[in-house]
Design a protein around this nucleic acid. Structure first.
Length: 387
DNA sequence: GTAACCGGGATCTGCCATTTGT
DNA sequence: ACAAATGGCAGATCCCGGTTAC
């Protein structure tokens, strides 16, 4: 580990030399390497190694402009990078280009996460290889970088990345899980191993406290149901568990069942949002004459109801109730709330025109894919008397 | 055939605050 | 003091279809 710093120092020196040689046609890059030397001799202050440049590296700026980078954005995000004497923007650009990134993608990546240009080629190659252990193609990785450059570039610790992959694998996540995790929540892999470990331990402890039989498998099941869990703080997840338990007055076994089931999906909501959504839902249901037990049943069977924003949920309920569906039916089939308000409204209209009777036929028809719904409608209109 | 159950795909980053390192 | 590294936060669904069971 102690070697890392030394290697890095060597790399940055090595880079400044090789850059000039390998990019023979780039005068901007070489002036950039000369600039600090001139400044260094002028003040001639203390020892010697650091030119106290408070000014931006002009030739670097020129380079970035030529590459189509949004320099204003870069400056706003990481001003320090623009003052560095030695950077590797050309190397990075070539590297990414080789991987299939377009000019505009490269420019966009640097604009949004300027520190990317401080990574050496060796470092990039290593990191890319590690990502390729999880992804099948370079194209997939380029896609993620375009989406979230920070996830790839924020950490310079490849050893940590490697350990994370090993750690996650040791939890029982297979290649497919890992792929899903890295493409969905790439930040997970830039977390320190320690941070990820803390969350996993917290989940294991929680499971054990609730009387779960095998706490070792618990984190895996949570993670595969909620891919964002590892980029949340343990504080947030813990608070959400407490909120759910207190609001619904859950026993240990009920809580455990909820978490091992669909409840995992809502653990990463912000605490206030969860609380607020619960309170508003409760108010609404009480005003509709529901009992506490109904509320509990709804949330246990369909926790995603708490994920839906209060305004959205409210309008969905409005349009279902207005369309002749009862709250009792919704409680039996909460998945209808999964669908967008527009979708629900449209289907209610279609069904109404056909004289569909929810009291007689139930509301199953609302919980189906577009294809299945249309097929059903077709059958109904072919033989109108059946339903 | 179709209801019931279930899991998965798309996507979820970009900013700020704090700590660490030199 | 500065930049780098790392942690944490707010934001806020919808849809599809395979499989199973009747």
């Amino acid at each position: 580990m102690a070697t890392v710093a030394g290697v890095r120092a060597l790399l940055s020196f090595h880079r400044s030399v090789t850059l000039q040689r390998s990019f023979g046609h780039i005068p901007a890059q070489s002036t950039s390497t000369f600039l600090p030397r001139g400044l260094c001799s002028a003040p001639a202050k203390s020892s010697e190694p650091k030119p106290p440049v408070n000014t931006e590296n002009v030739s670097l700026l020129e380079n970035l402009n030529l590459m189509g980078v949004d320099v204003k954005m870069a400056r706003q995000r990481q001003p320090g990078v623009l003052r560095k004497a030695f950077t590797n923007e050309q190397g990075l650009a070539r590297f990414l280009q080789d991987k299939g990134a377009s000019r505009r993608v490269i420019a966009s990546i640097i604009s949004r996460y300027p520190r990317a240009i401080t990574r050496s080629i060796e470092h990039l190659e290593q990191r890319w290889a590690l990502w390729r252990d999880v992804f099948k193609t370079d194209g997939e990785i380029v896609g993620i970088l375009d989406r979230s450059p920070e996830s790839f570039f924020r950490s310079s610790d490849n050893g940590n990345l490697e350990k994370n992959i090993a750690f996650l694998t040791s939890l029982g996540l297979n290649t497919k899980d890992l792929h899903r995790l890295l493409s969905t929540a790439p930040r997970t892999f830039s977390n320190s191993l320690e941070l990820n470990r803390q969350m996993v331990e917290f989940l294991e402890d929680t499971c054990a406290e609730l009387g779960g039989t095998n706490p070792e498998q618990f984190p895996k099941s949570i993670i595969s149901r909620n891919l964002y869990i590892l980029i949340r703080s343990t504080k947030r997840v813990k608070t959400n568990i407490d909120i759910l338990r207190a609001s619904l007055k859950l026993s240990d076994s009920e809580m455990l069942a909820l978490l091992q089931g669909p409840g995992a999906e809502i653990l990463d909501l912000s605490n206030e949002y969860l609380k607020n959504n619960f309170n508003r839902l409760q108010e609404r249901m009480v005003s509709l004459g529901c009992r506490k037990a109904d509320i509990k049943k709804l949330i246990l069977s369909y926790p995603m109801v708490l994920y839906i924003g209060t305004d959205t949920l409210s309008s969905k309920l409005d349009c279902l109730l207005r369309g002749g569906v009862t709250m009792k039916q919704i409680l039996e089939k909460p998945k209808v709330l999964d669908y967008s308000t527009e979708n629900i409204t449209g289907r209610l209209g279609e069904l109404q025109r056909m004289g569909y009777d929810f009291q007689k036929n139930g509301i199953n028809i609302l919980d189906s894919s577009r294809k299945r719904f249309d097929a059903k409608i077709e059958r109904l209109s072919a033989s109108p008397e059946t339903k």
